[in-house]
Amino acid sequence: MKLQFLGPLYAHPGPVASVCLDTSRDQEDPDRALDLRWRKLRRSLLAHEADEATVGAVEAAVGTDDEVAGRHGQAIFAAHGSLLLAERLPEPPDRDSARYGMLPDTLGLALQHSPDIPYAAVAIRRVHLAEAAEEELRLDLETGRWPMSRVAPGTHVHRRIPVDGWPKEADQLLAELVAAVGAGGLELVVLAGDPWSVNGLVRSAPKKLLGHFVKLKDGHYRRPEPGRALLEEELGLLFEGRLSDHDRHQLDAYLGQRARHPEYVEGLAATVAAFQRGQARTLILNRPVRIDRHLWVGAAPTQLALSGEDLSAFGLNYFWEEPAPGAALVRAAAGTQAELIAVPEDVLPVEDGVAVLLRYMLPE
């Protein structure tokens, strides 16, 4: 998973206010519940010497996702009186948090983006038009990147098609999907709804597209609630425990490196050393994330170490102990154009819960 979306957070010097909170709408009087949560977090930021202007910038963004139905959350970042980033979260955090520190605490946000699978959902309904004594098809096409699309759907297209016009419409739709797959923008095309239309679409599809189709067994689907993804529940079952194709290939490459040189790629010490050299291609974290020691960091993404003495030995005069090691590792990855893979601990356990895929191996 690429981390470019975090770029705005590292373009400004700290300190940064990082807030992550539950903004769900599936409860009684959600606005009052959110206000109580935010008041507690606001007091915490001010107690840690956040300036009023920065706290005000966060406050202005809290709850701006109120058009999204159901359970969800928000991650908000601000510095020097300006909002840096506000994103919806497909799941509310396990607990609300507010932190004011030199680095933005981006680990939770990054994990909610994972596994970042690009897909298209196609849902077709057959509707009887009583006034015209005929039928038409109503097609919804939505693209997204799972799981963030649950609360931030991508492009949505709605079309009404006469039944006898479906073959022509199907050809046009297939051409659009082929182009998207060819551009690397789709891994899966999920089909649901009217069996006649869906089966006809599959029969007409070129071979290069067939491997991307997933046809849902149930011919019925529910319209999404406001702000939610098309076929969200079905997609959740389909994508559960799944990695993107790109991430699976990278994990295979990592396993090859680990088999030959585990001392270079597994564990916190090896991961830190790889980032110091700018050698890391991908940061690999076990889920749940449990990194039980602080890191020391400087102003640049590659300036991180297991101790302050290590950074001092590199000739640095300005560095600090970072109590959020996940934030330091994510900044190192984003700042060196490395990627991130979050893999369940029971699927691929790694030492210290941290590993790295290298861009290149050091000479023997």
Rank of each mutant, 00 (worst) to 15 (best):
residue 230 L to G: 09
residue 238 L to Y: 06
residue 264 Y to C: 01
residue 213 F to N: 07
residue 190 V to P: 02
residue 285 L to G: 04
residue 346 D to E: 15
residue 342 A to F: 06
residue 327 A to L: 05
residue 248 R to L: 14
residue 257 Q to H: 05
residue 231 L to V: 12
residue 161 I to G: 02
residue 27 Q to R: 15
residue 44 S to K: 14
residue 170 A to G: 04
residue 149 S to R: 10
residue 239 F to Y: 13
residue 21 L to Q: 06
residue 79 A to N: 01
residue 353 G to I: 10
residue 235 L to G: 06
residue 168 K to Q: 15
residue 295 L to P: 09
residue 226 P to D: 12
residue 179 A to C: 02
residue 82 S to C: 03
residue 47 A to Q: 10
residue 197 S to P: 03
residue 192 A to P: 02
residue 346 D to R: 14
residue 219 G to K: 02
residue 228 R to F: 12
residue 274 A to I: 02
residue 249 H to A: 15
residue 75 A to Y: 09
residue 323 P to C: 01
residue 347 V to D: 14
residue 4 Q to V: 04
residue 103 L to S: 07
residue 91 E to P: 00
residue 11 A to S: 15
residue 204 S to F: 00
residue 74 Q to F: 01
residue 124 I to W: 05
residue 271 T to Y: 11
residue 66 D to L: 02
residue 236 G to E: 13
residue 217 K to S: 13
residue 145 R to L: 11
residue 5 F to R: 13
residue 10 Y to K: 09
residue 81 G to P: 04
residue 80 H to I: 01
residue 191 L to N: 04
residue 279 Q to V: 00
residue 64 T to W: 00
residue 97 S to Q: 14
residue 307 S to L: 08
residue 218 D to F: 01
residue 227 G to F: 12
residue 77 F to L: 02
residue 209 L to T: 03
residue 227 G to A: 13
residue 91 E to M: 10
